[in-house]
Amino acid sequence: MPRSTREAVEELPLLEAGLWPASPAPEPPQPHRAKTPDRPPPAALGHRERLRARAAKALDALPDYELLELMLARSLPRGDVKPLAKALLARFGGLAAVFGASLAELTAVKGVGEAVALDLKLVQEATLRIGRGEVARRPMIASWSALLAYVKAAMAHEGREQFRVLFLDKKNQLIADEVMNHGTVDHAPVYPREVMRRALELSASAVILVHNDP
């Protein structure tokens, strides 16, 4: 209800005497402060530093979950990633299977986003390229251990059967490694004419046929 002129005049002496509550003065603007990035809690920071120190002394002595934990810490700088590392190993059954899992399978694990899944797949891709390079630099027959290690890394954790062909030159060195066909969980069709056609295109002198059983 609006006040009358008389009421306003009657309140004037009280305002001058400081006995009537006046409207609060507006607060001065606060200076802008840059938001500091979130950091892991002190306990997590201390654990990571101790883990890094141990890795620097004897990297090969770390169990699989701690190795995976160090890798996840680079993708997830906040919080404790040990439970996530153990959850991934429990879900897929081992370190190689974690890296061999698809992006969709990885992101289905709680706590794994697209960026983390991609980081894990980068590790697998680097491993495959290293293995492919070692195989390509040496005669195939003289380096079965390198060949088997490469094929295992490439196919051991595939969810579907595939028919893969390694094309060799006359010195038994690798020309190309190609998946000729994908199948289902229990079979993969192969057509000899397609294998021979590709071998002629590459001028291959020999082939190694590889097949996996999921």
Rank of each mutant, 00 (worst) to 15 (best):
W144Q: 04
A149W: 01
A136M: 00
K110N: 15
R39C: 06
A108L: 04
L147A: 11
G131S: 01
E134K: 11
K35R: 11
P37M: 06
Y150H: 12
Q124I: 07
M71I: 08
G93Q: 10
R78A: 06
A146Y: 06
R48P: 02
V116C: 13
Q124D: 08
A101P: 08
L120G: 14
L67P: 01
P40R: 05
R54D: 13
I141V: 08
E105R: 02
K86H: 07
A126T: 02
L62H: 13
S143M: 01
A117D: 11
V112D: 07
M71F: 10
R54A: 14
R50Q: 10
K57I: 12
L62K: 13
P77G: 05
A58Y: 02
V123F: 00
T107S: 04
D119V: 06
L106R: 02
T107E: 11
R129C: 03
P83G: 10
F92Y: 12
R137A: 15
V109K: 10
M140P: 12
D80Q: 10
A146T: 03
R91G: 03
A56C: 05
L59S: 03
D64R: 02
L118S: 14
L122S: 04
F99L: 09
I130C: 00
A61F: 09
V81Q: 05
L84S: 09
A136P: 00
V98D: 12
E69R: 03
D119T: 09
E134V: 09
L84R: 08
P41W: 03
S143C: 11
A55Y: 14
R54K: 15
A96R: 04
G131H: 03
G100L: 05
A58W: 04
R132I: 00
E49H: 11
A149F: 03
G79Q: 11
A73G: 14
R132Y: 04
D80W: 09
L76G: 02
V98G: 14
R91M: 02
G46M: 04
F99T: 06
